[in-house]
Design a protein around this nucleic acid. Structure first.
Lengths: 251, 251
DNA sequence: AGTTTGTATATTATGCACAATGCATAGATT
DNA sequence: AATCTATGCATTGTGCATAATATACAAACT
């Protein structure tokens, strides 16, 4: 049935709404602000301790202050800023103690998430994870590797589709710690290879449907990562740390 | 410059959010809305699945819509509502699976929190916790007991003064599960006595500064509580369960 | 005829400009 | 010098305009 299409050929099939759902939803101003500020903070573009003034942010991103205020609430929930009544938003830095706390939580929570989602993991999801794994083995740039890494774990645990508290918390924690992970990988590229080997083992355990094995491997993987980061931070002077955090990426 | 004020002086004017304690520092409208809605939801006054319309809430609490929207963001972070762009807020119910998830997280996180805060616990804090413990032993009303219980644990772990991610998450989880805890205590009052004995043991361990013991006891205490809740829910007929979180989906 | 597809309307969330409150700091008074 | 007061400034709150979604209803196709 060849029906005349009034609206642009974005989607095949019926109507623009079905197609809209596949593409990205029209983002609200708030989502735009949250995304931008989160990226900026995680990339270290805002000095920890510096204030974020809503008017300034609103002017810079060309929106009004209302969506900025709501964005601040979201960033507060993610732990990226602190927010006191009438006193405004302050960028929270990540101390080593923070990173340790985050990883100690992940070590305990991610095996639990893996166990709880284990039965819902399909062969197709494993296949997608394996595809991501191959791309991660081929790509050695820390940033893109980290990005793929997040997608990898999200694929195996149901990702954002899961609406429970656990998956949301795990997702947020993984995000929050990412700058340090990237940092340690910059310092010692062999860490990436170690992670890739861990992922290969993990995929193998998923393939043979070894629930217990997946849980244990997940725990071990994170504990080792924390250990690596701790050693790396100890090795570095805090000066160098600050330098790396301050520098921004080349366009 | 004394231009006439459209808004009356603090405290009286925009109504009854002065109806709370007059002596308390003027809270912001947002804090008032968050507190009110949280209490209402946790008390089960809103059917799970029902919508919260910002205009309605704003009119009822005699506030404008902006603080209501920001309050929605806070409640979203606490997991009490879900929130989709342009589609509004929906009250989330607590399924047994949710409660299990929450307790499985608490079993893993609270020992960690106890360990991390252990060295900062002062004798004075222990004394305050003991005072609360005595009041809890004397009081057998489930609601007040639960309220004191939260204060008890907050006292021993630094409470809200702590600004790390861990303490905030633990605090939120404890809050979220409270309706079920109260429920199980209503059903079987001896649970309160069991908890009181656990607390006495815990305090003794704090007194002798046994870090490992505190951690283990905390874990055991929560695991037992989850077990009790599960058995209690199982014991009840699915009839009564259905009463608690009524399914709003029409066939 | 029954179902689906398209359009108009109504409802609700989102965004904006402005008014007002509270915090912080600098200046004046005792 | 210390305390109190006044002023600047950023956050908070309000009312309204706009954009998006859901609902109702008419038209078209199988």
């Amino acid at each position: 049935m060849t029906r005349f299409m009034i609206l642009p050929p974005i989607g095949i099939g019926r109507g623009q709404w079905g197609a809209m759902k596949v593409r990205e939803r029209p983002r609200t101003a708030r989502q735009y602000v949250v995304g931008t500020l989160r990226r900026e903070i995680l990339q270290g573009r805002h000095q920890p301790g510096s204030r974020l003034r809503q008017e300034e942010v609103a002017a810079r991103l060309d929106v009004s202050t209302t969506p900025v205020r709501e964005a601040f609430r979201d960033l507060l929930a993610e732990g990226l800023i602190s927010l006191d009544a009438h006193r405004g938003a302050v960028v929270r830095g990540l101390t080593l103690s923070d990173v340790q706390e985050i990883y100690q939580m992940r070590v305990r929570l991610e095996p639990l998430l893996a166990e709880r989602t284990f039965d819902n993991v399909t062969d197709e999801q494993i296949a997608r994870a394996e595809a991501l794994h191959r791309r991660m083995c081929a790509n050695t740039s820390p940033e893109t590797w980290a990005s793929l890494n997040e997608e990898f774990h999200a694929t195996l645990t149901g990702g954002e589709t899961q609406d429970g508290r656990l998956s949301g918390i795990v997702y947020t924690l993984a995000h929050a710690a990412s700058p340090y992970v990237v940092l340690s990988m910059f310092a010692r590229p062999e860490i990436i290879e170690m992670n890739n080997r861990d992922h290969a083992e993990l995929l193998a355990l998923y393939r043979v449907r070894d629930r217990e094995g997946v849980s244990l491997k997940t725990e071990l993987h994170l504990a080792q990562t924390l250990d690596t980061i701790e050693r790396e931070v100890e090795r570095k002077s805090s000066q160098q740390l600050a330098d790396l955090n301050r520098d921004t990426e080349p366009g």
